[in-house]
Design a protein around this nucleic acid. Structure first.
Lengths: 336, 336
DNA sequence: CTGAAAGCGCTTACAG
DNA sequence: CTGAAAGCGCTTACAG
């Protein structure tokens, strides 16, 4: 009736219990073929009664796989990271691999990455923005042969796996959506210049405006940094320079939320006086009021796919996986 | 000029390069004493030029430490998790240890935990709510001798390290704050019953009311589940049954945000018609409008401390570390 | 203060 | 289909 008291069972314990060799046990835990069903069953049963689970440390040392997937982020906060983590943890569970999170603040200093990589020997590393576009980091990982999957990268790179959306097209569509609603003077809040997607989304906005024959005046644009306060500030700038706008497209939801916050405090009603849209379908988008019309990108799925690209030994490089986006219509837009 | 091309350097490489034995190199990387400064310097230099970093897998196998800290959560979303992660990653960086995130959805099913623990052999595991109060999980970890640090646990447990705040006192203070502002009819939105803190916060609220000679009628209470929609629903329930309330204390910020959302859509102005306060100082608290008065608990610091309790070989058990809280005054309360 | 030996728990070739 | 041997890169006792 006593449970396992301290020392975890080892593969040899299982081998002995099942009356087979070490190697045979190893085979079943690695899904190799050539093991009779008979033995396999005995081994699995022995493993179960002994509560055996192969130790990743030993497997790593002997086999060259660490069973560790690195998620490198510049900041662990935010709904974007949370969504990636959900997708990744899920994929990890399904593959017997584990998610280790590393925060890399300085995109130009590779030393921390080098230490992490050298000590953990990740089976692969996931790089969300803005790390996915950091040249120094990418170069280091390439030189050291670390499998990489980039999420939401701004530009394609032949030798790295990548999952992404067409940022420019997405912004184009959203702008077009606003235009279809009758808006002509549409403002735009630019994202953090450090993120490659910022320029792409701006381009999409400009293209859509141009395609509709609408002019983009300088005063229609304001610089933000993908966070709430900068959205607030940008809205203020916009309202001062371009009070004639009927809609504002913030290039992410946090900024949109900041903008709406500023506006409501300034007595500008959304969407009655001004329509506002965002990008990401951040959790904040459904928690604010009015709820925010935004571009949804399937981050959780993208993360899962990124994990797959890393784990499948197939030529993971060269694999570029594009995801499509939807516009989620909520309450923050009004037709004019 | 060629950089490290593939195979990472090993400790033997460093030993050779520095002209010492393997063991001596090992000594300096483990901060053992008895190494002459002279040799130590040579070793460190050799390590640097070779870009050497001890492999955790090898260290783990030989030394019995995995250098992995497990963060077990029931859901990877939310600002609470983000804050913990920030504190933990920070502590990990400082100690050469790594953060592995595992999502445990079923609090009664130990099988997933058992698999993770057996394969990774965590140096320790961090348990935030509600996992920190899950009996089955705790029992398993105890039986297997896994060092544990609980964050925000509802009840003390002699044999597990714990960092926490006095939930009841915090809720008492917040209620008292509202009372000091002249409120007498104060509503309360109860948190998820699965979280031990929910009952404690409710008790704090009730005690403060009683201490002030105020009555808590049943209609002053509504059940929530610590998320936005449930806050919205609870506010509706409250407004229907107790339209005479002048303040509502939501036992976390997400519910408070949901409540405010419902209220503003229902034409109830916050704080003019009704004051609302929350708990946590979630990022949402400063992003909503009005900004939310709430209880701030130092989650990041608590997480760092939890990590320390696990890593310091001292009798980590028995160590119960209490943190204090502050009331953050913002815009959602009005004196009556 | 320093080092040679053994071994951690697996997987990798290699034989059969 | 199965197993015995060697070795992954470190740390642990143990000697000196």
């Amino acid at each position: 009736m006593t449970k396992s008291l301290k020392k975890p069972a080892t593969m040899s314990d299982v081998a002995k219990e099942a009356g087979v060799s070490l190697k045979t046990v190893s085979r079943v835990f690695n899904n190799e073929k050539y093991v009779t069903e008979d033995k396999k069953a005995r081994i699995l049963e022995a493993a179960k009664t002994l509560n055996f689970q192969p130790a990743v440390a030993a497997r790593g040392l002997a086999g060259g796989r660490s069973f560790m997937i690195g998620l490198f982020v510049d900041d662990a906060s935010g709904d974007y990271v949370a969504k990636m983590m959900r997708g990744l943890v899920n994929a990890c569970d399904a593959t017997g691999t584990h998610l280790v999170v590393e925060v890399i603040r300085d995109l130009d200093d590779v030393s921390k990455v080098q230490r992490a990589v050298a000590s953990v020997r990740f089976d692969g590393v996931i790089l969300p923005p803005p790390l996915c576009d950091a040249p120094a980091l990418l170069a280091f990982l390439r030189e050291n042969g670390v499998p990489v999957a980039r999420i939401g990268a701004g530009q394609a790179l032949e030798d790295f796996a990548s999952v992404y959306i067409d940022e420019e097209l997405a912004a184009y569509k959203m702008t077009d959506y606003l235009i279809a609603k009758g808006h002509k003077k549409i403002g735009f809040i630019i994202g953090d210049p450090e993120h490659a997607c910022s320029a792409l989304r701006e381009t999409g906005y400009r293209r859509a405006m141009a395609a509709a024959g609408l002019t983009v005046e300088d005063r229609f644009l304001a610089q933000g940094y993908f966070n709430f306060p900068s959205g607030r500030d940008a809205a203020q700038t916009l309202m001062q320079g371009a009070p004639d706008l009927t809609a504002v497209f913030a290039s992410n939801d946090e900024m949109a939320a900041g903008a709406v916050d500023y506006l409501s405090n300034a007595g500008v009603r959304v969407p009655d006086d001004l329509s506002v849209v965002g990008f990401d379908d951040d959790i904040a988008a459904s928690m604010m009021s009015p709820t925010l019309t935004t571009v949804r990108q399937p981050i959780e799925d993208m993360a899962r796919q990124a994990h797959a690209l890393i784990c499948n030994p197939g030529d993971y490089q060269k694999i570029q996986h594009r995801f499509s986006v939807d516009i989620v219509e909520r309450q923050s837009v009004r037709a004019v």
